[in-house]
Design a binder for these strands. Structure first.
Length: 299
DNA sequence: TATATTGTTACACC
DNA sequence: TGGTGTAACAATAT
């Protein structure tokens, strides 16, 4: 489940390998991935044709990110908007040496041939191949002629603060939380408030802050809001630094696994011992999501 | 074989 | 309006 740290790690890795390369060829193996967002997508042949035609021959200028969206910026203003949703992967494999990518990091794909049955887009670049894989097919890779075209969709309109941006201050966060009601975890998962948290980091943030994820926001003290804020701005960069969380269907740009999973304190640890007090961690459903917290250390 | 899983959107409901 | 809950998307692990 790529959340912000995973997307940012992938962005940084890919940037290093593919920026400056020209796209030689594009092959789309599942049309719906490139034909829209949401649940009403279809395999639209004309959209697929347009997608390939617009991208082929263009040089990759940069890769940027907004929330969990990645933008692969092409020549003449064109760009790809990539959302991995839950199981999307972008894997770059260098032609120069099948076992390595630039930078010398080993690519751990020897027993994981590409393309595989979940490969839906193949971008052939000058020095390698970029694969889009997506087991559950919820993600998308869309082409736009300009950022204005994306903005027209209102795609980014409702996104809240980037947790790493200067605008995300304690004062602003506090004010926002004070204006809200409802379940804390729901607010943390709400991309309209702060972007980038998903089910893993929402639980991790609550644990580190010592606040139960099922607390009502309106009952939070100023100090608790501050703890939550501090946890967000500490955990997100730390996770990026470690290359994101390793989950079963997520790989880094170089094919390796992220290392943040080793630091998960609660995610996937329901029933296991709390690292602080040794008591059994509580697993339940909060805001419609599987949630793990310590009933003793989190108030 | 049934169930849990999860990012996001759509939509019904109060 | 704001907040809640659920379905949908799809395939896999358990």
């Amino acid at each position: 489940m790529p959340e912000l740290p995973e997307v940012e790690s992938l962005r940084r890795g890919l940037e290093e390998f593919v920026v400056g390369q020209r796209v030689r060829n594009v092959e789309v193996l599942l049309g719906k991935i490139v034909s829209g967002r949401g649940t009403k997508r279809t395999n639209d042949e004309s959209k697929v044709k347009n997608f390939c035609a617009k991208i082929s021959g263009k040089k990759i200028l940069s890769i940027t990110r907004r929330a969990k969206n990645m933008m692969i910026n092409l020549e003449r203003g064109g760009m790809l908007l990539v959302h991995l949703k839950m199981t999307g992967q972008l894997v770059y494999k260098s032609n120069k040496d099948n076992s390595t990518v630039s930078g010398g990091h080993p690519i751990q794909l020897s027993d994981n041939k590409l393309p595989n049955k979940h490969t839906y887009i193949i971008f052939t670049l000058e020095d390698g191949v970029l694969y889009y894989n997506d087991v559950r097919q919820f993600g998308y890779v869309l082409y736009f002629d300009s950022i204005e075209e994306i903005n027209k969709l209102g795609h980014f309109d409702d996104l809240g603060w980037e947790p790493l941006d200067e605008g995300f201050t304690l004062a602003a966060f506090t004010e926002k939380m004070k204006s809200k009601k409802g379940i804390l975890k729901k607010l943390l998962l709400d991309q309209k408030v702060v972007v980038g948290l998903g089910n893993i980091y929402a639980d991790e943030v609550c644990y580190e802050a010592g606040v139960r994820p099922d607390r009502k926001v309106e009952t939070l003290s100023k100090k608790e809001i501050q703890k939550l804020y501090n946890s967000i701005i500490r955990i997100i960069p730390r996770a990026i630094e470690l290359g994101g969380s390793s989950v079963a269907d997520y790989l880094l740009a170089d094919g390796s696994r992220g290392n943040y999973a080793h630091e998960h304190k609660v995610y996937k640890r329901g029933g296991k011992k709390c690292f602080k007090c040794g008591r059994e961690l509580n697993k339940s459903e909060v805001a419609g999501r599987t949630t793990v917290y310590c009933g003793f250390d989190q108030k």
